[in-house]
Simulated scan of single mutants.
Amino acid sequence: MMQGKVLICAGSDSGGGAGIQADIKTVTALGGYAMTAITALTAQNTLGVQGVMPVPADFIRQQMRLVLDDIGADAIKTGMLQDSPTIEAVLAELPRDVPLIADPVMVAKGGHPLLHPEAIETLKARLIPAAALVTPNLPEAELLAGHAIAGEADMERAGRSILALGTGAVLMKGGHMEGAVLVDLLVTAAGTARFEAPRIDTRHTHGTGCTLASAIATGLAQGMPLHDAVARARRYVRAAIQAAPGYGHGHGPLDHSITVDPSRIP
C-alpha cells in the first residue's frame, strides 16, 4: 500500500541517475508517493553535466503551491537549488509543520558547480535552519563548516558546526573518505549515531546522495523515527549500488528498482 507523500524540490537529470529522476524512483521503490517542483533542467549523462537551464522562481513557487494545496505532503526534500532566489522561492512555500530534508547539492560528481558561490551564505543562513535534517557529503560539509575534514573526528566536529547553524540533525556522509569501511555519522543535539559498512569498489555511484536523502525523506513521511529512516535508507542505497546495471561510460546509475517485483502484475 502506498504510504507517505514526499514533495521533492530539485533539478532534473536527463541521464536519469540523479536529481528528480532518482528521487522519484527512490520514493516509489520504498512505497511512498513522489511529487515534484523542478528547480532546474540539466543536460547530463554519466560523464558529467554539460548544461544547466534554471527554472524561474515564480514557477517553482507555483509548482509547490499547487501540489501542497491539493495533495499535501508528509515530508519535503530539497536537492539542487542553484541560487539565492531559488532557495528563497522554496522557503516561501515551505509548510511549517512538514519536515524538510535538505541535501545541500553544491557540485556534481564530475566537478560541475551546481550552486552559485553567492548562494552558499543564503543556504547556511536560510535553508539549513529550516531543515529537520541536512545531508552533506564531505566536500559540502567542509564548505559549510569552514574547515578541512581528514578523519572521523573532523567529521563529527563539522557536523556539530553545521548543527549550530540551526538544523535539527546532520547526516555526515563519509563516502569521500578513503578506507575499506565507509562511515556515516548522524549528529544531533542528543549525541552522535555511527553507521558503518564495507565499502563497495565500483564507479557506478551516480545519484547516491540524491537517493539517500529521498529515501530518508520517505521514511520520515511514513512515520519512521529519524535513526530508523537513516538506517533503512542506507540499506536501500547499498543494495541499489550492488545491483547497479553498469550503464554508461562514467559514473553509472544505481538500480533503484531493486524492490520492484513485476511478477506481481496480474
Rank of each mutant, 00 (worst) to 15 (best):
G168S: 06
P95S: 12
L100I: 05
T218V: 05
A229E: 08
S263M: 13
S161C: 08
R199I: 05
L123H: 01
S12N: 12
H204R: 11
T192F: 05
A108Y: 04
Q63C: 01
A119N: 05
A197M: 10
P129I: 07
Y236V: 10
I60G: 04
T135A: 15
A108P: 01
I60L: 07
G17K: 04
Q50W: 12
E178S: 15
T122N: 09
E178Q: 15
I87S: 00
T259D: 05
A193T: 14
L100D: 03
A215M: 04
G175T: 09
A57Q: 11
T218H: 02
A102S: 14
G32C: 08
V90G: 01
D70S: 13
G19Q: 10
S14K: 06
A197F: 10
R234H: 13
S257W: 15
Y247I: 15
R194G: 07
R65W: 12
Q62L: 13
I38W: 04
A125C: 09
G209S: 10
R235G: 12
P136F: 05
M155C: 14
S214M: 08
A158V: 05
E121S: 14
A190D: 13
P104N: 06
G174T: 01
K77P: 00
D184H: 10
A240P: 02
V230P: 03
I200V: 15
P113S: 09
I265L: 15
R232C: 06
I24S: 04
A22P: 03
H227C: 10
H256M: 08
P253Q: 12
L47G: 12
R235P: 00
R203W: 00
P113L: 04
H249D: 13
L165G: 09
V67H: 02
E121G: 02
